[in-house]
């Protein structure tokens, strides 16, 4: 029965590949947690780095990361949701729509360093915004746009047709139907997409490294520069000057990313139950 043996071997290999994937994930998480946990303290989170070896905390980099992420999401959310509303509810299949879809796909595939150089050329230099939260957020916006557009469009399309009929049947206009029934019904899935995009933005490095600047600074206005956690981690790791701080930063970053991912997952599961 060689047929059966071949089957057994193949199944074992498939199990192995799946287990490898899971094992790698846990190895990475575990590695960061084990090495970073000793570093984590209120002092580390809430104080400034000091001296050439960046001893002390990472507070300004946390603020910079959250600042730029929040700013980018504030800019991208309305644009992406309304764009998705257009594609899912208003657009008639045709040339215009296929151009928009093609552009969104292209935008989604642009390497993040290219997006970073683009941000540098347009926002930092041509628009004279300089290295700043705003420049980085604008560059991030273009990176996030196709992601949020796609998840939102899928969320809107998943709303059953007959819900729309019910609304039209009551004499609602198209916009009333979209705003009062379709968007509320799609909201949990839209939020899930937004949270996942936020996680992506938090972890992004190549886009922000040449748009936000690298100097440690506490940003107040959107025109201030700063150094996000990812860039801080990169610099500490590459220069090998303060590995404990690098582990601590990596762990904080990981906690934020896992937090976003798990809360998106929780949200999605809760709405599926209802």
């Amino acid at each position: 029965m060689s047929k059966r043996i071949a089957n057994q071997i193949a199944l074992a290999l498939l199990w192995t590949s799946a287990l490898t994937t899971v094992a790698v994930l846990f190895a990475v998480i575990l590695y960061v947690v084990v090495n970073g946990i000793g570093q984590l303290s209120l002092g580390f989170i809430f104080t400034w780095p000091r001296g050439v070896n960046a001893e002390g905390g990472v507070w300004p980099t946390i603020v910079s990361t959250l600042y730029v992420t929040a700013l980018a999401m504030v800019i991208v959310t309305p644009i992406a949701i309304l764009a998705a509303v257009y594609l899912a509810e208003y657009a008639v299949q045709g040339r215009l729509v296929s151009i928009i879809r093609c552009a969104a796909d292209t935008l989604a595939s642009v390497p993040s360093i290219v997006m970073g150089l683009f941000g540098l050329a347009l926002f930092v230099e041509a628009a004279h915004i300089g290295f700043s939260m705003l420049s980085a957020a604008l560059a991030l916006t273009f990176l996030m746009l196709p992601i949020v557009m796609r998840t939102t469009e899928e969320a809107i399309r998943a709303v059953p047709k007959y819900i729309r009929w019910g609304s039209y049947g009551l004499g609602a206009t198209k916009w009333q139907t979209v705003r009062r029934t379709v968007l509320p019904a799609a909201m949990p899935r839209i939020l899930t997409g937004l949270i996942l995009a936020t996680g992506r933005a938090v972890g992004e490095t190549a886009v922000v490294i040449y748009t936000m600047g690298q100097a440690i600074n506490m940003p107040v206005s959107p025109l201030d520069s700063g150094r996000p956690m990812t860039v801080h981690l990169y610099l500490l790791a590459m220069e090998g000057i303060n590995l404990p701080a690098a582990y601590g930063t990596a762990l904080l970053l990981m906690i934020m990313i896992l937090g976003f991912n798990l809360s998106a997952r929780y949200l999605l599961r809760r709405t599926r139950k209802v």
């Binding site: 899971v22 996942l196 990812t230 990596a250 990981m254």
Partner: peptide, 18 residues
């Protein structure tokens, strides 16, 4: 796990690799 793997920032992968 696969979805979570997609969410891990590349700088962390680099750090792990390094």
């Amino acid at each position: 796990a696969v979805e979570l793997l997609a969410g891990i920032p590349s700088v962390i992968f680099g750090f792990f690799g390094l």
